[in-house]
Simulated assay, not measured.
Amino acid sequence: MARPKRQNDTPETRAQILQAARIEFAEQGIAAPLEAIAARCGIKRPSLLHHFSSKQALIAAVTDDILRMTRERLLSTISSPDGDYATTMQKIFGVLRELEREEQGVAGVLVHAMMAEDKGGPVTSKMAEFIDIIYASSVMAGSQKTQNPEEFRAAIAHLVIGEATRVALGSRAKALWGNGDGLTPLFSSYFLDDNTRKPDK
């Protein structure tokens, strides 16, 4: 006879744990205690460990969930181009910022997880895949500048990781970046020639 399902043994509880872990990891880093994560979603540590057998399993699940959401949003943006090449590319680079507004802690977790993992870890590898998708879509859309492929991909990586760091810092980013949004001019210098830049209004 199957055991009765406990109140906390539901997909909804699992989703709440992922959300709580995302916020705690973003605020405290990967060192955030499981007790704080459990308390944030109103359960005890043993209930959390029923869903995720270890902290490493929870970190992997959170980062997988974030990268899944990011990838889906990116592919949706690529498959539904709205406007010219420049507009489409700017929307692609805005995916992470847009997702952070809806799902607090996304960028912070990715940055913390990449810094904490060993060489060739799964988070870094999946971020590399994410960058490869942007690179491939840029090439298919027709870059406005002739670029060395390695240099072009490196430029994309700089923009993506820089944007993730800025978003992860939240209000603290102002001390480093100031009030200006550096993404647009950086994007323009890498991807647009003088004829495709939109005039200042």
Results as ranks from 00 to 15, higher is better:
P149Y: 03
E103G: 04
R14S: 05
L176Y: 02
P4V: 03
D194Q: 12
M114H: 12
Y85V: 06
F25G: 03
F187W: 05
R71E: 14
Q7Y: 08
L67S: 03
P149I: 00
I131G: 12
M140L: 15
G121Q: 13
A136V: 08
R3D: 10
T63G: 12
A128G: 12
V123N: 06
C41K: 10
I37F: 08
A86E: 05
R166C: 01
P185I: 06
P81C: 05
R14I: 02
G170S: 00
I131Q: 11
T13G: 02
K145P: 01
Q90Y: 07
V106R: 04
K201T: 15
Y85H: 07
D194L: 09
W177S: 07
R172G: 00
Q28K: 14
D84N: 09
A141L: 15
I23H: 04
I66H: 08
I131P: 02
Y135W: 13
R68Q: 14
S80T: 15
T10F: 06
Q16N: 15
I17Y: 08
E98W: 03
R97L: 10
T184V: 15
R68W: 12
V62R: 08
S53W: 09
F93E: 07
I156N: 01
E12Y: 04
L183H: 02
L58D: 06
L110Q: 12
L159Q: 00
H158M: 10
L67I: 04
G29S: 03
M69W: 12
G29K: 04
K145N: 13
K5S: 11
V139S: 00
L49P: 11
R166S: 04
S53R: 15
P11E: 08
R68A: 14
A175G: 01
Q19A: 13
Q147S: 09
I30E: 11
G120T: 11
L186T: 05
E117K: 06
F191I: 02
N8C: 12
I43S: 10
R197G: 07
G108P: 02
T87Q: 15
S76P: 00
K201R: 15
V62W: 02
R71M: 11
G29E: 07
D194V: 09
M89C: 02
K119M: 14
R73V: 04
E100T: 01
R3A: 13
M89T: 01
F93V: 06
E151F: 06
Q56T: 15
T88L: 09
A32M: 09
A128S: 13
P122N: 06
E27Y: 09
K91N: 14
P4E: 12
A2D: 14
V95K: 01
G120V: 13
T184N: 04
Q144S: 03
L176Q: 03
S80W: 03
E98D: 14
D82K: 07
T88E: 12
H50W: 14
E27R: 15
G105M: 06
S53E: 15
Q28E: 11
V111A: 10
I92E: 04
E27C: 10
G83R: 00
D84R: 00
Q144F: 00
D200A: 14
F52R: 11
A168Q: 01
N148S: 09
S53Y: 11
Q7D: 14
G94N: 06
F191G: 02
R14K: 08
A38H: 07
D9H: 10
D181A: 02
D132E: 14
K198L: 13
F191S: 05
E72K: 08
R73K: 10
I131S: 14
D181K: 04
F93C: 09
S125K: 12
